[in-house]
Design a protein around this nucleic acid. Structure first.
Length: 408
RNA sequence: GGAGGCUUCGCCUAGUUGGUCUAUGGCGCCGCACUGCUAAUGCGGUUGGGGUUUACGCCCCUCGCGGGUUCGAAUCCCGCAGCCUCCGCCA
């Protein structure tokens, strides 16, 4: 289904086709099951029989074995057809998700006031270079376009930010995780990133492993093929990882500075819960993101992302966008998605319902802090002399420093 | 990279001359009984998944994973993965 069709909420008849394939799958299973039962009984008789009787039973068994083989092939085929169609479908869109594409988001609220400056504010690259906090030139020299070094105070600022995020996550009951950043194909596919966004993902051909663009991928895979016990409430994780993105198709976009890069660090929240709890967990994740933004004192707005811009796995998505003085616009800092049961179905992560039957769980994710935040922090807290005021919440993580001064 | 060993139902474990293995025993867990608490003891239950059923239940699959041989595979053959040991190499 194309994004435009999702945006319009059209029923393309795929549901009917899916139900039809499911019916075919079930009848194939039933047929194979009963043939296997017959074969089992016959095998028992052969074991006890002798002489002529045994010979005739053996012939029967041979014939039956062929039938079983055929029925099993049919079952496999039916199951594959079902899975294939299911794999091609994006998640169902939440009824409250705005219709439309990239520009059809709904602004839910504004928080904070964009700072005012005498004259033009410097952008994060100028500020960062003067602080000797980052070098994109050397990043390009060593690794190519969209790579950078965080140097000295820049590296410290990043660790401070991420540590603040970790501290908040931990306080809120999220278990800290440092996950692998290389994952198997089925995990990457299970999270929905090999659909529309396949070209965004780095693939190591020699090993058939994918570099994750977010720790969401690894964390989603953590409980794959498991039945999780949600009786005591949702599982809440916070993953710290480096993220890798090819940024294919974004040539010429955000080439200056470190807004859009191939490699960055992120603290990501990830939740497994019962589908009934997904919406309230989503609100929780959004609240946690807003709390982080407040701590680093950034003006931002919250948008409800429109259906056509949801990606494959999200049912609903809220982005927090911070104000960037150099661009006089809001740019994405966080994104939280309710993936309902989409990822869990593919990764086979289930929980037991009230009757004790395994059902697909719901998964949600949300950004708590990323390297990109440095952009907003530098720009919003810059002072006329090129120094940058350190938000109070970050100071304990920077040895108490209140301001970052330009070098030399 | 090379050689060898291992992988059984939550944990430990029996089982490899192919056929009542419909997988043994212990621990743990659940229920009941007994004991005025706890504990101990006794009896019973307990792999997981899927299909079907109003329900009771019935059926199939599941011995790391995937193939193969066979009427029939935990057991035989092939491939793969993971873990362990030794050797080699290495930031």
């Amino acid at each position: 289904m194309r994004a435009s069709q999702r945006a319009r909420g059209e029923d393309t008849g795929l549901v009917d086709r899916l139900l039809e394939l499911d019916e075919r799958r079930r009848s194939a299973i039933t047929r194979a099951d009963s043939l296997r039962a017959e074969q089992k009984q016959l095998g028992k008789r052969i074991g006890q029989a002798a002489g002529e009787e045994r010979e005739s039973l053996l012939a029967q068994g041979k014939d039956l074995a062929a039938q079983v083989k055929e029925a099993e092939a049919e079952q496999v085929e039916a199951e594959e057809a079902f899975r294939e169609l299911q794999a091609g479908l994006p998640n169902l869109v939440h009824p409250q998700t705005p219709a439309g594409g990239e520009d059809d988001y709904v602004v839910l609220k504004h928080v904070g006031t964009p700072p005012t400056f005498d004259g033009d504010p410097a952008d994060h690259l100028d500020l960062g270079e003067r602080l000797r906090a980052l070098s994109t030139e050397r990043g390009a020299k060593v690794s190519g376009a969209r790579f950078y070094f965080l140097t000295g105070v820049g590296a410290q600022l990043e660790l401070a930010l991420l540590n603040l995020a970790v501290a908040q996550a931990t306080e809120h009951g999220f278990q800290l995780m440092i996950p692998p950043v290389l994952v198997r194909p089925e995990i990457m596919a299970g999270t929905g990133f090999l659909g529309e966004h396949a070209s965004e993902v780095y693939h190591l051909e020699q090993d058939d492993l994918y570099l994750v663009g977010t720790s969401e991928v690894s964390l989603a895979g953590y409980h794959s093929d498991e039945i999780v016990d949600l009786a005591g409430g949702p599982y809440r994780y916070a993953g710290w990882s480096t993220c890798f993105r090819r940024e294919a198709g974004s040539y010429g976009k955000d080439t200056r500075g470190i807004i859009r890069v191939h490699q960055f660090n992120k603290v990501e929240m990830f939740v497994f819960c019962r589908p009934d709890d997904a919406e309230s967990e989503h609100e929780r994740l959004l609240a946690a993101e807003e709390e982080m933004l407040a701590k680093v004192e950034l003006p931002y707005r919250v948008i409800d992302v429109a259906a056509g811009d949801l990606g494959t796995s999200a049912s609903r998505k809220f982005d927090c966008e911070a104000w960037l003085p150099s661009q006089q616009t809001y740019r994405e800092m966080t994104s939280t998605s309710n993936c309902t049961t989409f990822q869990a179905r593919r990764l086979n992560t289930r929980y037991r319902d009230a009757d004790g039957r395994p059902q697909p769980a719901a998964t949600l994710n949300g950004t708590l802090a990323t390297t990109r935040w440095l952009v907003a922090i530098l720009e919003n807290h810059q002072q006329p002399d090129g120094s940058v005021r350190v938000p109070e919440a970050l100071r304990p993580y920077l040895g108490g420093r209140e301001v970052l001064e330009p070098a030399g």
